[in-house]
Amino acid sequence: MIDTHPISFNGITPTPAWAFHQYEQIRRWLPAGLPTSEQPGPVTLEDMAPLADRFQVYVFDAFGVLNAGPRAFPAAIQRFRELQRMGKHVQILSNAATASHAKLVEKYRRMGFDITPEQLISSRWLLEQSLSDRGREGLWGVIAPENSEPDTLPLDWQPVRPPVTEQLKRKLDSYDGLIMLSSEDWNEEMQAALEATLTERPRPLEIANPDLVAPRGDCLTLEPGFFAHRARQASGVQPQFYGKPYAPAFQAVLERFADVPPGQILMVGDTLHTDILGGQNAGMKTLLVTAEGSLQGMDIPRCIAQSGIAPDFIAPEI
């Protein structure tokens, strides 16, 4: 299947340096994080082998840690299996929202990660839990490709998909709220229409995936979080985000392992502003992976100094 997530927008082609700068630009809209005096001094490792017996629970981000797009990292598959053989609890905590929970579990099983549905928490799942717990009134527009199975969402909805037409604009104006599952097929015209309708009549905007970018092989794609923050700047509407770095994503992990102290949980991710920031706020220990993720090729100590977000450990891969 051809990936249709945007790799450019209004002349912007995302790079790791650009993405880091964008996260810094929206820093005030992210969780506060630990004060400087409480930031750890990162320990650099070749991989996470020295940590394999140190924690009770290992929580892995997906893109940039386990895989890049459809390509799984062989070393990640091996480490995942090793931890399972050791009797450790392993969990995937992903901001993925295009695929339904069942399809996402199936995807990682095909890649070689032997997980059950209970070992995956996605931002799509978190959104669906919120919709189930607190129903949304009225008719909602859902931004998602057809293959994302938005019919799993427990609310009254209609699809919002390109191209922009007068009919689409009228529909956008009529919705009681908007949900963005995916940035697939999103473009400048659709973004302009979204910003215009929210500016004209502010309404709830719920974003399943807070990521600005995602590593997909040899490029970074622009993700829903990027477009949501642009819409916020244009309209003043504050989006409701699900997934990392926001507390509900990490609270879901803590609830699944209520008998495990947070300090006995290791959050492994490739992004300082999502995986590491959110894990720290939840009291978890953190490992930053640098070889193929969103910080690939960056000066990591400088990024840590600029952001004020320091992981407990740093390794090129797991």
Rank of each mutant, 00 (worst) to 15 (best):
L153T: 09
D173G: 03
D156Y: 03
Q158M: 12
S174D: 06
L181F: 10
E166M: 10
A144E: 08
E149P: 00
W140V: 04
E188C: 02
Q158W: 12
M180W: 03
E189T: 08
T165P: 02
E188R: 08
I179P: 04
V164C: 03
N187D: 14
S148C: 10
D176F: 01
R136W: 13
W140K: 03
L168H: 07
K171G: 02
R136F: 10
N147R: 14
L178C: 03
L168E: 07
Y175M: 09
S182R: 09
Q158K: 11
S183I: 02
P150S: 05
W157C: 07
R170L: 12
D151I: 07
G141E: 05
V160D: 02
S182L: 12
S182C: 15
G138M: 08
I179W: 03
D176S: 07
T152P: 04
S148N: 05
N187K: 00
V142M: 06
P163A: 01
A144F: 07
S174F: 00
L153C: 09
V160Q: 05
N187A: 03
W157P: 05
G141Q: 04
V142H: 09
P150G: 03
V160F: 05
D156W: 06
D176T: 00
I179L: 12
Q158Y: 12
E184W: 13
Q158N: 02
P145M: 08
E184L: 03
Y175R: 00
P162N: 01
V164I: 13
L168Y: 06
L153A: 12
N147Y: 15
P163H: 00
E184M: 10
R161K: 09
E146K: 07
E149H: 14
L178M: 04
V160S: 07
E188P: 00
W186D: 00
T152V: 15
D176N: 11
P150Y: 05
V164S: 03
L139A: 13
V142N: 06
N147K: 12
L181E: 04
P163Y: 01
L153R: 13
P162I: 02
T165I: 02
R161Q: 13
S183G: 09
Y175L: 08
V164Q: 02
S182H: 10
T152D: 15
N147L: 09
L181V: 10
Q167L: 13
G141M: 04
N147M: 12
E188Y: 08
L172T: 07
G177E: 02
S183Q: 10
E137C: 01
P159F: 04
S174M: 06
P154L: 09
E184A: 15
G177R: 05
P145Y: 06
G177D: 05
L153V: 11
P154D: 13
I143V: 14
L178K: 00
M180Q: 14
Q167K: 12
L139S: 05
V164M: 08
L178T: 02
T165Y: 03
R170M: 13
K171D: 14
E166D: 15
Q167V: 13
K169A: 14
S148T: 07
E137I: 07
R170S: 14
S183R: 05
R136V: 15
A144M: 06
M180Y: 03
D176M: 00
L153Y: 14
D176L: 00
